[in-house]
Design a protein around this nucleic acid. Sequence first.
DNA 1: CATGGGATTGACT
DNA 2: GTCAATCCCATGC
Length: 216
Amino acid sequence: MTGLSAGAPALADPPGDPSSLAFYERSVQEVARELIGCTLRHGGSAGLIVETESYHEGEAACHAHIGLTERTRTLVGPPGRAYVYRSYGIHALLNMVCEKDGVGAAVLVRALEPTEGLEAMRRRRGLDKLRELCSGPGKLTQALGVGLELNDSSLSGGPIVIEPRDPAAPVPEIVTGGRIGITKAAELPWRYCRRGSAFVSRPLPPAERRAGARED
DNA sequence: CATGGGATTGACT
DNA sequence: GTCAATCCCATGC
């Protein structure tokens, strides 16, 4: 008795499984969109991903644009691993490596809506306010206890866990805009935010908020 | 070998 | 709004 007939349209936009390596072996822009609404978990804490950015070796803002170096070894390597690097000499920034082995491409996680392990996050951040716990790429790694030692760790069965969206929950609406904090290739609309989220790192410019743009 | 610039944050004017 | 902290790496002399 298979009531679930072939041909019937899936509920809506089947999310795929972000805890499987195959999820990451595709276009980095696609992965960046689909990670919105997924759960990121580490160190006894977790949150919903509400903001991402995509980076690809074909454009100058990507670390791998210059080719393979010791720093970009993970980024250029096989998909489904964490690329964690030190930013401004101070912060650890977390990326998911995408596309096939040998192509430098990754999704930067920029903000989470905290959902579990809030006290541990507050302790690691030294802050109380919920909205400030994970509203930035350096903040969320500190809140989850993600450090440089997790660079090159697997996103499937590793210490960092990524879970699919709740299939019963509404599919998040996504708004795109220019990436934050870069000078090169700043015109590309490769920042992806959950529409209406109060937990993004910075509000979107009004024009981009309205557009819901789709120029990727 | 010296210099300068970051995929940032928090403190301060 | 401005600015320092702090380190890796690319570039240039």
